[in-house]
Amino acid sequence: MSRRSIFIIITAVIMLGAGAWSVYLMLRPAGETVIISQDGKELYRLDITREPDRTIEAEYEGRKNIIEIKDGEVYMSHADCPDHICIETGKLRPDTPIVCLPNRLVIEYENSGLDGTAR
């Protein structure tokens, strides 16, 4: 077998593996518990079906994030960081968390990420 075909197979395996992994993440049931944590510590644990509409503020080293809860959906409405990636992520989905790296803030469903398989 030529080098070329070995390389093609390795690339295909990585892509198929990652594809299967992301399909698994997307199809998994979301659950109802949303966890908001900062710097590795859990700040809030919310039952999203029962939570009334409200805003939550979180502060990290003087920088502020505002998290909005509306009709059972969670999203970041304000962030003091330079990139605003967390706001562009939009509403929280079961497969990917909302992450604000500069302010070390994570919003996720309880059974998302690797923690879900361990629990």
Binding site: T11, G19, L101, L114, D115
Partner: peptide
Amino acid sequence: AMIVLKSTTVLGYLPFLLISGC
């Protein structure tokens, strides 16, 4: 990102990043 956030949550991004990376 996992070290900074002290959480394995961001691993959920990895499969999507691997596909886009390829």
